[in-house]
Amino acid sequence: MTDLLALIVAKYNYWLYVILMMIGLYAMIAKNNLIKKLVGMNIFQTAIILFYISIGYKKNATLPIIENVHGTGGGHIYAIDYINPLPHVLMLTAIVVSVATFGVAMALAVRVYQRYKTLEEDELRMRLSEK
């Protein structure tokens, strides 16, 4: 039991990411307003990005910038001294994609509002079934 508890406490950040992801999933499924659903989608995306950044982290390592590359040389470069930059680069792309998705979704929400004068999902469904 104490082993399990120690495991849960040691990996606290993963549990909190799971909580964040489930908040996003709940907002996407259960909320009635379209804008709230978009916020839920973005929370879900940032939870996943957070998970990926956190698996690139190392203890006692520094930022992945090599000093004196063209300088004196001689010193060896060890990968264990630097944080893994591969997840950073991948997630940089994911952030840009998520903002583009957010912008397009907002534009669609504005069009939906101009046509139906509402953003609530149940009212939209009612308007659609009237026709």
Binding site: I83, L92, I95, G103, M106
Partner: peptide, 25 residues
């Protein structure tokens, strides 16, 4: 977490531009 490039992209793009989009919408 040491991901400074991701941090300033998020500060400019996530906290800046998407808040502006949101308020405009």
């Amino acid at each position: 977490m040491g991901a400074v490039d991701v941090a300033f992209t998020e500060a400019s793009v996530g906290a800046g531009v998407s808040t502006v989009f949101f308020v405009a919408a």
